[in-house]
């Protein structure tokens, strides 16, 4: 019965199967087949995400990382913090209860690359900003087990002694602008000075930071040392802004029980 039904199509199928066979005899045809089969799927799945901007909730108050915070982010990447800490609170009740409102796509729109992470050997850091004092963060980075005896985190005491490299900041900011972060010319030119001013406000460079990045910017001595700008300043400044770039998540997600 099936045979009868398929009979008219037999020649088509025959042709089809033989074409395949011939294709496999030609390595370049096989190559083309593999590329086609593999790339179409990925393209179909990923391409629509690049038009996502018109559906993603717009965060009007979204601010950019200051040069100091971006330098801290680069240190966070350099030391491989992302291997143990995620920055993505999932839409699960226990995560919201533990870490705060779940993460929105808009929050990482300027994160090149994203640091959502894949493993929580340590807790999620998406909203760790201002949860602890600067002093706690510094002491914890210097010797995690002095504050949390059960911790398995490595010590980062050396960050306190390393001066922060600020000469390359303008180049880094302009590279970020090339990939889509809207830094202005003014912000790029003043990047080194702004990094200095944000962590050492006594030097008279703080006003420029507030003017270029907004009044909400954290301007203070992060590492407790007034004499120099260290990598610890940058990393703590970054940690303290995590979750603080926009108020949107807190506004759109009312607390449970309210």
């Amino acid at each position: 019965m099936l045979r009868m039904f398929l009979k008219p199509f037999a020649r088509f199928f025959e042709f089809h199967a033989r074409t395949h066979y011939r294709a496999e005899r030609h390595s370049m045809a096989l190559t083309g087949g593999i590329i086609l089969a593999a790339s179409v799927g990925g393209f179909i799945e990923i391409a629509p995400l690049f038009t996502i901007d018109d559906t993603v909730e717009a965060a009007a108050d979204m601010r950019l990382y200051t040069p100091l915070e971006q330098a801290g982010r680069d240190i966070y990447i350099r030391e491989g913090c992302y291997a143990c800490h995620s920055q993505m609170i999932r839409t699960l009740q226990d995560e919201v209860d533990r870490y705060g409102p779940y993460s929105l796509a808009a929050e990482s729109q300027y994160d090149h690359p994203m640091l959502w992470g894949s493993k929580r050997t340590g807790p999620d850091l998406a909203r760790v900003g201002e949860k602890y004092s600067d002093d706690w963060q510094v002491r914890h980075l210097v010797d995690p087990r002095a504050l949390v005896p059960e911790s398995v985190m490595p010590q980062y005491a050396f960050l306190l002694d390393r001066p922060l490299a600020i000469e390359s900041l303008p180049a880094r900011l302009s590279a970020l602008r090339a990939v889509g972060v809207p830094y202005t010319d003014d912000q790029i030119v003043s990047a080194a000075r702004d990094a200095y001013g944000q962590a050492l406000p006594d030097t008279g460079n703080a006003d420029g930071v507030l003017e270029r990045y907004g009044e909400e910017t954290n301007v203070r001595i992060f590492d407790g040392r007034r004499d120099r700008l260290t990598e610890m300043d940058a990393l703590v400044a970054y940690l303290q802004i995590l979750g603080g770039l926009t108020e949107l998540p807190a506004e759109t997600q009312p607390l449970r029980g309210e």
Binding site: I44, E45, A47, P48, T51, I52, D53, D54, T55
Partner: peptide, 8 residues
């Protein structure tokens, strides 16, 4: 986004 994701 609607059109491209529907196509996908």
């Amino acid at each position: 986004y609607e059109a491209t994701s529907a196509f996908a």
